[in-house]
Design a protein around this nucleic acid. Structure first.
Lengths: 155, 155
DNA sequence: TATTGTTATACTCTATAACTATA
DNA sequence: TATAGTTATAGAGTATAACAATA
């Protein structure tokens, strides 16, 4: 039985709920990432942290956690693993020795780029199935919504 | 600190990963639904079941569970609650007394319609912030992706 | 023996609270 | 006293395994 993302929820006339489309779709995309991340020796949270780190060092792990929507206590093990793998560096801030400056290493940058390239290659094959004229507007709209402050969506 | 859905993950030149946009966006949309569902006396899974039920009775709870991406053991309590609230009916199939025929009651249909209207009203306010020309292509593309069999995304 | 619905158990993930060290 | 990081504990959510009824 080929089960679609939307399950049985048809909706005569109208559209399905945005959430009812996005949540299962997001889960499926995450599941699709897993083998790719495995091949690069990354966990989902590890990859998320690498993405969240950007290219400048981040002051305080708490800020990093908040930026990627995680609890500060939850990324500690993730940071430990990434550090042990040599993908990130944690250095105490000389000015305030409580805070840790977290930054990507060269290896971290390379792994992140390789993993992201592989992931987006897969995603591009998916996007290729859309009508060509819809692709750019779709991505533009999705980016616009994702860029909104969370409060403006939750209310 | 106004935290956007995308967190810090900028990506010079390219686009963010689809999953990195969809997953947090989906979570935010779900969070936005919660108070609406509360007002209608529904849980998230309860609402999902109502959506999954469609308008014809569903044979076997297992099929229903699979259709909405849940475990068959997990929706039992949900069905119990919905039944007690008078929103669904469970009747043994005369032909095979193992299976339960699950169907919406009139009240169930009404509650589902009311909740969905309220939810989509909120969502429409969000969509209104997109460039008008992008709205239809966005929804069309999102529906197309959500209608894909899960296997075609996960691979 | 196989399947539907159910219950009971175990496991994973996440959030809360308590601790250390710096300030 | 307040904050960053860490650790330990508890809770929610989910999946796995065992059970009763029917086929």
């Amino acid at each position: 039985m080929s089960t679609s993302i939307l399950g049985g929820m048809r909706n005569d006339g109208g559209r399905p709920d945005l959430a009812a489309m996005m949540v299962p779709l997001g889960r499926a995309l995450m599941a699709a990432e897993r083998p790719v991340l495995d091949a690069h020796g990354l966990t989902m949270w590890g990859y998320t942290v690498l993405l969240g780190l950007g290219d400048e060092p981040v002051r305080t792990q708490g800020a990093l956690a908040q930026a990627i929507g995680a609890d500060k206590t939850r990324i500690i093990g993730v940071l430990d693993d990434l550090q042990e793998s040599g993908l990130i560096e944690r250095r105490p801030d000389p000015g305030d020795r409580r805070v840790h400056l977290v930054s990507l290493t060269g290896a971290g940058r390379r792994v992140r780029a390789a993993a992201q390239a592989a992931i987006q290659e897969r995603e591009d094959r998916l996007l290729a199935r859309l009508p060509a004229a819809d692709r750019a507007p779709f991505l533009r709209a999705l980016q616009a919504l994702a860029a909104l402050p969370r409060d403006e969506i939750v209310g």
